[in-house]
Write a protein that binds this DNA or RNA. Structure first.
Lengths: 229, 229
DNA sequence: TTGCATTATGGTTAATAAACGTTAAAGCAG
DNA sequence: CTGCTTTAACGTTTATTAACCATAATGCAA
């Protein structure tokens, strides 16, 4: 699977590093540039799938960069980051158009949701698992609707349950690291989150217990393997 | 269909750019000018259907610009933008034949509604979902009329209900942030508005409950996803 | 090597907290 | 008065934290 490439223009290096690492831990590839003047060239070289641009940058601001990027590439989604003081006091609502805005401070969850949404327009490639129901043993799983169905019985899954099941399914028959799951779903793998994952594994096992062919196998010290009939 | 042309005089460039893009993403065409001295000439060239003028502008303020615009065109609607502190300006604005004024901070929803109101008698609304009825499962939704129809049964929606449904529909199958909804429809995402959104989600769910394929799925801590059959 | 204790890791369940849902009533504008 | 929006109170669901249990790996003595 090819990684999604994110071009990220940010001059606050401390914040930038955190965001970069956080995105990388979730499977994105990130190219970061802190100088507005060099951003367009860096974008060109990056061949990025999506841009995240801070508006306030030295030498050239995010809007000017966006304009030039648009000349090179009409379609690449652009997400702007704006500081609170720049806009919030004046306009309190943004549009959700081709270009998107996120106000600082933002959570990683927010940024990731926006990136995923923005990329959704473009390629249906990631996997068809999004829209269609898929077979999981004698169950049927619909990710968009977050429903795990079994002959005559639908169970509504919560977002976390459903995202964990998706992850397991996408990596079925392979060993999936605990660490990776935690980073992808919780953003980090601290002590508490670790127990959290256990709780959700327990839940999924209980939901799936009616088909003995469907198993979440523990690989102690490493992670899990999801096997289907 | 011809786009509605908005002439927009604004010197805060960051704000201006965001507003411009927001309007454009909703199907308006926007001509922006940041220098009061050049505004009248720019308006002439723009052949705009409506003007949005910030009052505080360099070289020539919004009132003076409005005066000159009125000499050229008696009918074009003018909306003033005033900073919070300049309330006394409002009176002056109305005496100059302004159609409306908006105090900063304002939400994009607010601006769009005012623009649409001002133009109500002149031409049809810009966004294509505005004029046509759209299919929502076995329902039909007409945004302009704010009517949600089901075989033999029409339900008149209130403004908020209908705007929320539009937002959900425009972002169907995607994760829509609570924060965005709140900012777009209410102008901010304070504690009280948050409960408010819940109330309207409940209402829409109950209106839509006859088609089980139409669902507003909660994504706790993030927002909602609207799914259609 | 066997048997037993130790330790680490994950499993399970329950308690708590946070977020969201529902309903009714109060406020408000036309 | 009427219809819509907001506020408020309370209920429910989901997520997190905590406590305790089970088991596999490790270490060590006999």
């Amino acid at each position: 699977m090819n990684k999604i490439k994110v071009f990220y223009a940010e001059d606050e290096l401390f914040l930038g590093k955190i965001v970069k690492e956080s995105l990388e831990s979730r499977g994105f590839e990130v190219m970061m540039e802190s100088d507005g003047g060099k951003a367009v060239a860096a974008f060109k070289k990056s061949e990025a799938d999506i841009c995240v641009l801070d508006i306030m940058l030295p030498n050239k601001d995010g809007f000017a960069i966006a304009d030039e990027i648009r000349e090179i590439n009409e379609d690449v989604p652009i997400i702007f980051l704006t500081a609170k003081t720049q806009t919030e006091d004046v306009v309190k609502g943004f549009s959700l158009g081709a270009n998107d805005y996120i106000r600082k401070p933002f959570s990683m969850e927010e940024l990731i949701v926006r990136i995923q949404n923005a990329l959704r327009y473009k390629s249906e490639a990631p996997s068809k698992i999004n829209s269609d129901a898929i077979a999981v043993g004698k169950y049927t799983f619909n990710l968009n609707r977050q429903v795990l169905a079994k002959e005559g019985e639908d169970r509504k899954l919560s977002y976390r349950e459903s995202e964990l099941l998706r992850l397991l399914y996408e990596n079925r028959d392979k060993v999936l690291d605990r660490k990776d799951i935690l980073n992808l779903l919780w953003g980090n793998d601290s002590f508490f989150n670790s127990r959290n994952l256990d709780v959700y594994i327990t839940k999924l096992r209980s939901y799936l217990k009616d088909d003995p062919g469907v198993e979440i196998i523990t690989i102690k010290g490493i992670g899990y393997r999801f096997v289907l009939p």
